[in-house]
């Protein structure tokens, strides 16, 4: 099978089936596949696609959309996006029904109590890693990260406000 569109779709389908902990965890493997195994793009192109998907609104998995777009145009983007969503759609729906049925059971409560702190820890770790990469140890950018967090903690206003301020500061060359 030499068709890049089919290969990429199958690869993403497989990755989204094993991506426990969020789609972002599969990005290194996606990179290895499209750059080093298949040679469809350079490392530099992949890095740009990733940065753009982070700067764009929407869930992290749209990095796969962009990779599909780069490899096979519109059909690539569409199939790559579908491949990221379908496995989760089925599995999460089944999990939700299971939870509705057994959610009051003692053992289920206990498993939930065990899982929650791990999930919270992973979120905080993601925030820490992201702050470190985006700031490049530049104090002004770290302060911006802290200010954005504080804004969301003390007000209930839209998160768009700190993002717009940050975009304006960056565009003015103040960061």
């Amino acid at each position: 099978m030499d068709n890049p569109l089919g290969l990429l779709t199958l690869k993403i389908l497989f990755l989204s089936c094993i991506a426990v902990g969020g789609f972002i965890a599969t990005v290194p493997e996606l990179n290895r596949f499209v750059v080093h195994v298949q040679g469809w793009m350079t490392d530099g192109t992949f890095a740009t696609l990733f940065a753009l998907s982070q700067a764009s609104p929407g869930p992290n998995l749209i990095v796969a959309t962009l990779v599909g777009w780069e490899v096979a145009g519109l059909p690539g983007a569409a199939l790559a996006t579908l491949a990221t969503c379908l496995p989760t759609l089925f599995v999460a729906y089944a999990a939700m029904r299971f939870r509705t049925r057994h959610g009051q059971a003692g053992w289920f409560r206990m498993v939930e109590r065990a899982i929650l702190p791990i999930a919270v820890g992973l979120i905080l770790a993601t925030a820490g890693l992201l702050a470190a990469t985006t700031s490049g140890a530049e104090p002004r950018r770290l302060a911006l990260t802290g200010a954005a967090a504080l804004f969301l903690l003390v007000t209930r206003r839209s998160p768009l406000i700190p993002l717009a301020v940050a975009a304006a500061l960056g565009a003015a060359g103040l960061l």
């Binding site: 820490g128 702050a131 770290l142 990260t145 954005a148 969301l152 993002l163 960061l175």
Partner: peptide, 8 residues
């Protein structure tokens, strides 16, 4: 940078 703060 701001996005990192939102996640935190």
């Amino acid at each position: 940078s701001a996005a990192a703060g939102l996640i935190a």
